[in-house]
Design a protein around this nucleic acid. Structure first.
Lengths: 183, 183
DNA sequence: GACTCCTTGTAGCAGCTGCTACACGGTAGC
DNA sequence: GCTACCGTGTAGCAGCTGCTACAAGGAGTC
């Protein structure tokens, strides 16, 4: 039993890196198995089906993103919504985090077409982001702080979309214009 | 020849409605053909390959979105970036336009994984949005106006993402917090 | 040594994928 | 009437998809 769970964890780690690079869609079991260094037969031994593979891998990627965010903006930070948004947007548009944002948008797109397990995962990850942002805001807990956290998320995600379509320079422009556009 | 182009146009119109409802990914030629009321054989007669079908259909959907936006916010509008963003975000979160935003995010996700024809189409559509927003801003043409247009797009897209993951109420909350979060 | 169970390779299935070869009726031009 | 070409249906191909049946190696237990 130990071998199985250990192998499973290793597979998930490798798959996380692979999906971050190659995207969520158009993945086949054989491709995933090759990327994980196992046979597709074994993938179905470690996991019940493909959906379980994807769910575990996306969860792993979400965790990595949270870890990266923690490293950039520690838990004892206390900023105004505008300052945190500015800081978070600067972090999420860094080259190191761009693959995560690209991947996150793919998850949302899959959730938008009501495809499981992505509907569930997207909602979970959104909750994770809110729980990460809220304690870093210098606001008392409550509806206003929740709304501010959602505002910060909307800003980071909107900039990520611009970045994908028009590149980093356009995203920087958009970021500079946000105070004017959202005022 | 006339019949062919007429049929082609009709197919594109029907496919646009179908894709808006069912999403961009996981579409097969046979499914598309059934939705268009023709045989898959004919689909490949009207179009060179599946990519051409998708490109034409996505372009049609983009046009419909622009038409809907024009109806809501006419061309002779002249608003401050903040006011236009507020107005545009209110429009794009309406139930009638939600499918378009959901679809747009799917296109961006496909572009993010560098999948043609979506890379090209996403860039084109982004340009279309900018060209739609800029003349509706009460700013002189120039870099500042371009940046402001990008800011408006980032806001609308960010809110669309929130809407997909957490629902309309959360998107409304985020919208209300934007002045605070982007200040 | 016999037994059991975890782990793994081989082989393959049924269904779907994008796409195509081929045939054939209709219509326009001469 | 003949030819040429447009439009369309039938049938199917080669490759891929998720998933599985079967068998067997290996380690531990008695």
């Amino acid at each position: 039993m130990a071998i199985k769970t250990e192998q499973r964890d290793m597979v998930v780690e490798r798959l996380a890196s692979h999906l971050l690079e190659h995207g969520l869609a158009r993945t086949t079991l054989r491709e995933l198995a090759a990327a994980a260094g196992v046979s597709d037969r074994m993938l179905m031994y470690y996991f019940r089906d493909k959906a379980e593979v994807m769910a575990a891998t996306v969860a792993e990627i979400g965790q990595r993103l949270i870890v990266a965010l923690n490293a950039a903006i520690p838990a004892d930070t206390a900023l105004s919504p505008a300052m945190l948004a500015r800081h978070a947007a600067e972090v999420t548009t860094r080259p190191a985090l761009k693959p995560y944002m690209r991947f996150w948008i793919e998850v949302v797109a899959a959730a938008g077409r009501r495809e499981e397990p992505f509907v569930t995962i997207a909602a979970l990850m959104m909750t994770g982001f809110r729980d990460w942002i809220e304690p870093r805001l210098d606001l008392p807990a409550g509806p206003d702080r929740q709304a501010a956290a959602l505002g910060v998320i909307a800003i980071c995600d909107g900039l990520a979309l611009i970045d994908i379509c028009s590149g980093g320079a356009a995203a920087d422009l958009a970021r500079s214009a946000l105070p004017l556009a959202a005022g």
